[in-house]
Amino acid sequence: MFEIKHNDLGFELKMSATLENIDLADDFFADYLIKNDISTNHFSLRILLRESMLNAVTHGSDTDPDLIVNMEVQVSSDEIKLAVKDPGEGFPWQDKKPHFEVFEESGRGLALMHMYSDAINYNEKGNQVVITKKLQIIGEK
């Protein structure tokens, strides 16, 4: 499953929890950012989409293609929000620090999300993350 619905603020994506669908979502998002002339660093936004989706697909859904991951993208005049929700038990965000060890294989995803975003918020359960990235205001120095 891979469904996209456009709305007035952005779009909503529902997809089966597979790694291949993350690539499809990124391809769509990269194209969306260009077509809508989103005025901030596109690479940063794509990293944010990828890492939040990767957490939702692997940790939140155990890469089970029968489970569904949802993403909503909302664009306003000064920021873009990515909200990613999975059907899992939730991420213990209260206890997790965005720290990584350079020689460790895991732990970089959360660090990247903090490095490339302006704000990260979770719901209480920890199965939804909302990432905010400020946009560059045209004409602002």
Binding site: D26, F43, I47, R50, L54, V102, F103, E105, G109
Partner: peptide
């Protein structure tokens, strides 16, 4: 044009 956290891990494994 894109490397994610899983891809980055491959580089450190290769280096080590």
């Amino acid at each position: 044009d894109m490397i994610d956290s899983k891809g980055l891990a491959v580089f450190i494994v290769c280096h080590k």
